[in-house]
């Protein structure tokens, strides 16, 4: 019995290796039980869920890569966008139709970023590439949209007096809310900008790590990582700006009045 898979790259664990990694779950459970954190059951449920979800996704991706081609992959990406829109939309409570706003924003971020990469032939338009890269882009766009919607919903309540002071000076709603919209967008982008700044210094990023584990030369692996970093930044920027503009316009009625906060 070997814990490393035979016939594949030596650093990929076999199923026995995966089973052995359960020891790490035991370590985690031991820590939370000993420290009386009340999280033992949650850790077990999370770990079981993770393995079930990943096995299901792995099997589904196998089918996707071999049978459905590019249309199936794009459908998969669309599904991820729908899930992302639901998650990000829930952050914008107080913004009317926030899930719709999130769906449009994430779609815009994904379409612009993936479209550019495919059009410039930076990545191949094949399922094995579109699905994982699309996943990263959707995830980044969702993260950016979530932050923007959360901040915009908060600002519309906490900065109500400032917004109405600007409206009372005769400013149109877009200008009256502009400083708050920019704050939301800045907050969403700062995290990703910091990641770009520190990439490789604090930790090796995911795509590069995956390629290194798969045996790719480090200087080749960084090429992919550079593209990934810029791609994630662009996804957050495009999704964030679309979300911020759509969300802020929905906070006002036709009479340039800030809507009442949701009770």
């Amino acid at each position: 019995m070997t814990l490393l898979a035979s016939g594949t790259h030596p650093s990929v664990p076999s199923w026995w290796g995966v089973a052995a990694s359960v020891l790490l779950v035991v370590v985690t459970v031991a820590v939370v039980v000993r420290e009386q954190l009340g999280l033992g059951r949650e850790v077990l449920v999370a770990c079981v869920r993770a393995i079930v979800q990943l096995v299901a996704v792995g099997a589904l991706l196998g089918v996707l890569f071999t049978h459905t081609g590019l249309p199936g992959s794009l459908l998969w990406v669309a599904g991820m966008v729908a899930v992302g829109a639901r998650v990000a939309g829930s952050r914008g409570r107080g913004v009317p139709r926030s899930t719709w706003v999130a769906a449009v924003a994430i779609t815009a971020g994904v379409a612009a970023t993936l479209g550019l990469l495919v059009a410039a032939q930076v990545i191949d338009a094949q399922p094995r590439v579109v699905v994982p890269v699309g996943g990263m882009v959707v995830s980044a766009a969702t993260r950016g949209t979530s932050v923007v919607l959360l901040r915009i919903a908060e600002e519309s309540v906490t900065a109500r007096r400032q917004i109405e002071a600007r409206l009372a000076l005769g400013l149109p709603s877009a200008l009256a809310f502009a400083p708050h919209r920019r704050t939301a967008l800045r907050t969403a982008l700062v995290t990703d900008i910091d990641q770009v700044k520190t990439v490789g210094l604090i930790s090796l990023p995911g795509a590069m790590t995956g390629l290194l584990l798969a045996g790719v030369d480090p200087l080749t692996a960084i090429r992919y990582q550079v593209v990934v970093m810029y791609m994630l930044l662009s996804a957050v920027a495009v999704a964030g700006v679309v979300a911020s503009r759509l969300a802020s316009s929905r906070l006002f009625d036709d009479g340039q009045r800030l809507l009442e906060p949701v009770a």
């Binding site: 109405e164 002071a165 600007r166 409206l167 009372a168 000076l169 005769g170 400013l171 149109p172």
Partner: peptide, 28 residues
């Protein structure tokens, strides 16, 4: 928008909108 430039409003507690005096006066 025209109406609001003809009918101004001063709120209960001061709401300052610019970082310095001139910037605040220039908001509207």
């Amino acid at each position: 928008l025209e109406l609001r430039s003809r009918v101004g409003l001063v709120q209960q507690a001061p709401v300052l909108l610019g970082a310095h005096v001139l910037a605040d006066l220039r908001v509207g």
